[in-house]
């Protein structure tokens, strides 16, 4: 005899259990990192250069390096990604070629980050002769973020109702005027949120910067975009595996700072989305 109420209870329990399996490890990771890392985080840790072979001092150059890399990636990837999304969504017809392009972009998002690292090494470091530098690293991170920016931007553009475009065109606006004054302003929040989330991911990646920019030990700030720099994810890798006898709290402190940076970027994305949603009128 099947009892529908009991079946439902079992189903709810299983669904709840599955959710718990996701929440608990995430919560544990955050708690452990805060617990072990917080004692290390103080003003000197945030503002000083690494000392005694990275066993003491701070991680200031790594923080700044990551900020530089993320900023460079935005400057490079945001315009290209948004323009490509506008072209694909608003101008390109629906034919075999554009379908292949769209499929390729979706697939690019799934390419392992170490492959982007090798690609950046071949193209920017070697072919364009940038050497291992901030500019090569930024471009590599930017290229890695492009598929995410393009995909989320296209979703944001698509979410603007077709009727708005039709009204605008019926008033004699050109296609570009319609995009510029109606479609883009209403897609902006989605585009920005997608970009920030993509860059948040890029900020924490080690493999793409490994061959293209990251310095093992460079206890000063870079002077130009053609220099190497330290970066948080790589620094964490170095002090965890390459340097013996680093105090545990220094490692966890670095992890905590990286985590806080990424969470902060996600928080900015959430705030932007919330603000625009309040303004959204349809």
């Amino acid at each position: 005899m099947r009892n529908p109420r009991r079946t439902q209870k079992i189903a709810f329990f299983l669904l709840f259990l599955a959710t718990l399996f996701i929440v608990v490890p995430v919560g544990l990771i955050v708690i452990i990192i805060i617990q072990k890392g917080l004692p290390a985080v103080n003003w000197q840790f945030l503002s000083d250069v690494p000392r005694q072979g990275m066993r003491a001092g701070g991680i200031f150059p790594a923080i700044i390096g990551t900020v530089y890399l993320v900023t460079g990636a935005i400057i490079f990837a945001l315009p290209i990604g948004v323009l490509a999304a506008i072209y694909l969504n608003e101008y390109a017809g629906d034919n075999f070629l554009t379908r292949i392009i769209k499929l390729a972009i979706v697939n690019l998002a799934g390419v392992p980050s170490v492959v982007y690292g090798l690609f950046g090494l071949a193209l920017f470091v070697v072919f364009f002769r940038f050497g291992a530098s901030i500019i090569a690293g930024s471009f590599t991170l930017g290229i890695m973020t492009l598929p995410i920016i393009i995909t989320t931007s296209r979703e944001a553009l698509e979410s603007v109702p077709y009727s708005f475009r039709e009204v605008s065109r019926s008033l004699g606006a050109s296609k570009w005027q319609t995009i510029r004054y109606i479609v883009l302003p209403n897609a902006l929040s989605g585009i920005l949120t997608g970009t920030i989330l993509g860059l948040g991911r890029a900020a924490g990646e080690t493999a793409p910067i490994l061959f293209t920019v990251a310095a093992f030990y460079l206890p000063r700030l870079p002077h130009s975009v053609f220099e190497q720099t330290m970066a948080l994810p790589y620094h964490l890798y170095v002090i965890s595996t390459q340097v013996p006898n680093v105090d545990e709290k220094v490692r966890y402190g670095t992890a905590l700072v990286l985590l806080a940076l990424v969470l902060f970027m996600n928080l900015v994305a959430i705030v932007i989305r919330f603000k625009f949603r309040k303004k959204k009128k349809w």
Binding site: S163, F164, E166, V167, S168, S170, L171, G172, I182, N186, K280, K281, W282
Partner: peptide
């Protein structure tokens, strides 16, 4: 511009 149009549903722009 010379031939304006009013649609079936009220469609204000946002």
């Amino acid at each position: 511009k010379k031939v304006g149009m009013v649609f079936a549903l009220p469609l204000p722009l946002p």
